[in-house]
Design a binder for these strands. Structure first.
Lengths: 148, 148
DNA sequence: AATTATGTAACTTAATAAGTTTCATGATTG
DNA sequence: CAATCATGAAACTTATTAAGTTACATAATT
């Protein structure tokens, strides 16, 4: 399957929503993500259900933030997406008839679980607002060069 | 794609090879893994190239260990398999035109890298021989109940 | 009433491990 | 030598799931 890029993509969207006044249409977001509006709606649905964003129909409709990005951790976003399958690697079957297979599966699962735990911890460490901190200088300069 | 189960499966195979005297055919291994000989050969090829096992052709041929399992770490096995893609999740494109996308990608990549590091460290911690330690009692009892 | 936008279902495409088929090559046995 | 058994490897199909697409119903604005 193609790599699941929903997490970085919705983070990208949230950062844009925070910079734009008023609702942004799925069409516009689709252009940011180089994809089509239907896919945007499908991916954004999780964030809507989690209460991070809302959307309105009709003229002037679109997506907008319901909570400040300082109150949304990356882990919150990952969870809102449905906590998608993190690993491409996994145990074989759950056939427990062979003790050696069981031992091999358990060791693999243990290493994966340790990795998942660290992944979640890293995501929990920072808010979406923190994402731009390393680039704050550049973004500030860019915005000043193109006043609205 | 289906979940990549090559790591637990070859670990399973190595444990069996350690318990059987003389070469084991791909056909026999295929029965342990509930698959066919051709797939076994494909997966075992990495271990052969790494020098962990060898195979002989013809009557009485098959696979056997070249190194004791106490000298093969789980990380060695993972590497021998070609260090397969660990994550189903990944950054979006490497399109660097948007700073916000870059920030989102970097944060995602950072969390994944931390997870990968822990995964590798966990694998490096133990040898294939260590796998059966938690089950040593059970396996010993089982073997005694079925002497060769 | 026309336009614009979301919501959602249904379908196609892409990527890759697994699974399968086939045949060439080489080793053992009689 | 000839038959058999095994690996090696190429070529092909299948399974899984995110991405991408199409189509249409629903709702809000003008």
């Amino acid at each position: 399957m193609p790599t699941d890029s929903r997490l970085p993509r919705v983070l990208h969207v949230l950062l844009h929503l925070d910079q734009i006044d008023g609702p942004v249409t799925s069409q516009q977001i689709g252009q940011m993500l180089a994809t089509n509006p239907a896919l945007v709606r499908r991916v954004m649905a999780g964030l809507r259900d989690a209460g991070f964003v809302a959307s309105t129909k009709g003229h002037g409709g679109g997506w907008y933030l319901l909570k400040p990005l300082t109150e949304i951790s990356l882990a919150d976003v990952y969870t809102a997406l449905g906590a998608p399958q993190l690993f491409a690697v996994g145990p074989s079957s759950d056939n427990l008839t062979c003790l050696l297979e069981k031992a091999a599966n358990e060791a693999t699962a243990h290493a994966l679980e340790a990795a998942r735990s660290v992944f979640q911890a890293e995501l929990a460490k920072m808010t979406v607002a923190d994402l731009v901190a390393p680039h704050a200088e550049t973004i500030k300069a860019f915005q000043q060069s193109r006043p609205t």
